[in-house]
Design a protein around this nucleic acid. Structure first.
Lengths: 189, 189
DNA sequence: CTTAAAAATTAATCATGATTAAGAAATATC
DNA sequence: GATATTTCTTAATCATGATTAATTTTTAAG
């Protein structure tokens, strides 16, 4: 019964004690070292990770050998390769710690069992997914209405602490730019 | 108790008769004429629409006066302005029929009541949202790994029927291009 | 402290796709 | 069937951000 996750769930849903007991019936606390992988290309993703501490990234290596970051996993957020997880296909993505992390590891099989019987836990995940959809939609919106330079400055202003925590080239990749382009922007002043 | 939606739900979840009865307790069938709006900028979005027939689009008009299409609502799919819906803010988006449509209109208030008590219905929406997330992730992936021309051809090959059904400039907007650019690509052969 | 590895910078060149503007084709309306 | 509106096309110019390659700075490891 991890208090950090319990607290997080209660922000969005109203689980009973039984709901929480059932959820935590099967969970693994895991310390993750810097650059350690929780998933590699080719593996079948079977887990969802709740980030307690640190930062992870979900990324893919495309045809030209470039990394493409889709998501960061920051504290009080979940990270997984949803495509591999729900479609039972080999992952095309990697999940890697960008620094020392602590996570809670839940198997998908277990979570599906919990969601099947607990409206509160199911609603918790449903609400998170709705928030993710809105965030993704805003990202699309910004990427069209802002120039690259504006997009970078906007991201930095919205996430001032975060941009200090991960290497610049990862911010570049997340925003869809080359590291050189970010350098160019920063060099302007 | 609309059979088309019932069928759709049963593809992803196992609702009881009570679940379905509760869901359909409050629903409005609505015929929508071409170019008719279900939502306009500035309004508060209070509904989610299940598309039975036809096609709608969710779009926004940006600073330069250009339309930016985020989603199409095709048969057996849902359309709404999630941002306005969940954050109770005035919509920045429009929902408009691209042709004659038939939809089922559910109020968010009602759906939240249903999801609070029915794991099956909640799971149905959770599963759809997971699918949406995967689709959005693939869209991001493609938009980086493909050139504009490749992206357009890829989209056409994956949605051959759909591209015949809506004006070309809407495909352009959905993919993040100008109509002129699509013309240029098509003019090449 | 030294060396190796990782991350960031700079600058020149290049390609993609936007912009602008005008006209043609298709569709809808009366 | 004529007119108006919507949609699509063509072509020239332009800007953004990628690519390439070399160098510097920072961080990590022995």
């Amino acid at each position: 019964m991890n208090p950090q996750l319990t607290e997080h769930i209660k922000q969005f849903a109203s689980p009973t004690e039984e709901d929480l007991a059932l959820l935590f019936e099967e969970v693994e606390y895991k310390a993750v070292g810097p650059k350690e992988f929780l998933l590699k290309e080719g593996q079948f993703c079977k887990f969802q990770y709740f980030v307690l501490k640190g930062c992870l990234r979900l990324y893919q290596i495309n045809d030209r050998g470039n990394e493409q970051i889709f998501n960061f996993g920051i504290p009080n957020w979940w990270i997984t390769d949803l495509d591999s997880l729900i479609n039972h296909t080999p992952a095309k993505k990697y999940i890697q710690a960008t620094k020392k992390c602590e996570v809670l590891k839940f198997s998908r099989v277990h979570l599906e069992k919990v969601m099947a019987v607990s409206p509160a836990i199911c609603n918790y995940f449903r609400i998170l997914l709705e928030k993710v959809k809105v965030a993704d939609q805003r990202k699309m919106e910004y990427s069209l209405k802002f120039s690259g330079e504006e997009l970078y400055h906007h991201f930095c202003s919205k996430n001032p602490a975060f941009v200090q925590e991960v290497p610049q080239y990862m911010i570049a990749s997340y925003l869809g730019f080359t590291p050189e382009f970010i350098s160019k922007i920063r060099g302007k002043k």
